[in-house]
């Protein structure tokens, strides 16, 4: 606090000046999610002793990584009141381009990751350009580009799978090569990206601008924010993260890449984001919530398997989790508005 600011409350004559400019470190939704995840983990730990062991938790975190990683980008997009339903198809394109290049030329790790990220960012650029400058609702554009990306992906696949993948991406996989000091690399990278995005959304000017655009685009524009480049950027970031996540998915899979590599992932990502408390209407959301949302979804999925229930049941619980998480958020918002 600088000394000059002390006189401010008197100038405004009785109107209390908001001292808290930054949002709180942890939102209510995140606290609720941490609580639910803790309860689930303890319950599952009590019911199936194998659950709370490294052999069960580490694969869970590895599986969370790609969804949470794309979720970070999706959170940025949804905060600006947009959406991207093409990420599943984009995963397919980036993973097939990268794995075919690896099979053909045997390029090492770093160039392979860079290639994947570049391809993903290019796809994101297409989405972002159409959404920001075409002025069309994001869901329609990305439904359209989802079809286009699928076409491109299938073209690369030809009519079969990509076989004989090298072990370049095992550093992102489930195995021993994918860990340092017992921590999976893919999850560690995801946590770093979440931390960076958390800082960006909370402290960087353009991060705060995303909330302004999502809250009221016209007001944001009149306040001098360059809305279009900002929106374009969120889609490019998401595309780049899709590229990185595709590397994780290749590393987690077998030596064969299936055509269904990205199928349905867009909905899993959106589910993680909305469970994390990000408002689909824009203007509100956190990346920490998205990470927790992804962990909750994966906990439910592996919990169902560990309990010996049919694995199809996990989707039912994911649906229930979305209703419960968003429902409590709606009710909390309503009571906040009343008070």
């Amino acid at each position: 606090m600088r000394t000059t600011e002390k006189s401010r409350p008197q100038v405004t004559a009785g109107i209390p000046v908001a001292k808290k400019i930054l949002p709180s470190l942890v939102t209510g939704q995140e606290v609720v999610l941490i609580g639910i995840i803790a309860v689930l983990w303890i319950l599952l730990g009590l019911l199936t002793p194998a659950f709370l062991t490294a052999g069960s938790i580490l694969p869970l975190l590895v599986a969370v990584a790609p969804i949470a990683l794309i979720g970070v980008g999706m959170t940025l997009i949804i905060i600006t009141a947009g959406i991207d339903v093409s990420v599943g198809a984009a995963i397919m394109v980036t993973s097939v381009v990268t794995s075919q290049t690896m099979v053909a030329t045997g390029i090492p790790l770093i160039p392979a990751v860079l290639l994947s990220v570049a391809v993903g960012a290019l796809l994101g650029l297409v989405n972002g350009y159409l959404v920001a400058y075409g002025k069309i609702h994001a869901i329609i554009i990305t439904f359209g580009t989802a079809n286009l990306f699928q076409f491109i992906g299938l073209r690369f696949f030809g009519s079969s799978t990509v076989n004989g993948l090298p072990d370049t991406f095992d550093v992102f996989g489930r195995g021993e090569a994918g860990r340092t000091f017992g921590i999976p690399h893919s999850f560690a990278i995801t946590v770093i990206v979440v931390a960076l995005a958390w800082w960006y959304l909370r402290h960087a000017a353009s991060g705060r601008h995303l909330f302004a655009v999502g809250g009221n685009e016209t007001a944001a524009r009149l306040a001098g924010i360059k809305v279009k480049p900002l929106i374009l950027r969120t889609y490019v970031i998401t595309g780049a993260l899709v590229g990185l996540a595709a590397c994780f998915l290749i590393g987690q899979g077998t030596s064969t890449l299936e055509q269904s590599v990205g199928a349905g992932r867009e909905l899993a990502v959106i589910a993680a984001v909305v469970i994390g408390g990000t408002s689909i209407l824009g203007g509100r959301g956190t990346v920490l919530g998205t990470l927790l949302g992804a962990i909750l979804v994966q906990t439910v999925t592996s919990g169902v398997t560990q309990m010996g229930w049919p694995s199809q049941l996990s989707d039912f619980f994911v649906g229930v989790a979305i209703i419960a998480a968003v429902g409590t958020d709606i009710l909390r918002e309503r009571s906040r508005r009343k008070s």
């Binding site: 909905l267 589910a271 996990s314 989707d315 649906g319 229930v320 968003v326």
Partner: peptide, 9 residues
């Protein structure tokens, strides 16, 4: 989206 998951399951 939620009911999609639930009904499908």
């Amino acid at each position: 989206l939620a009911t999609f998951y639930a009904f499908k399951s």
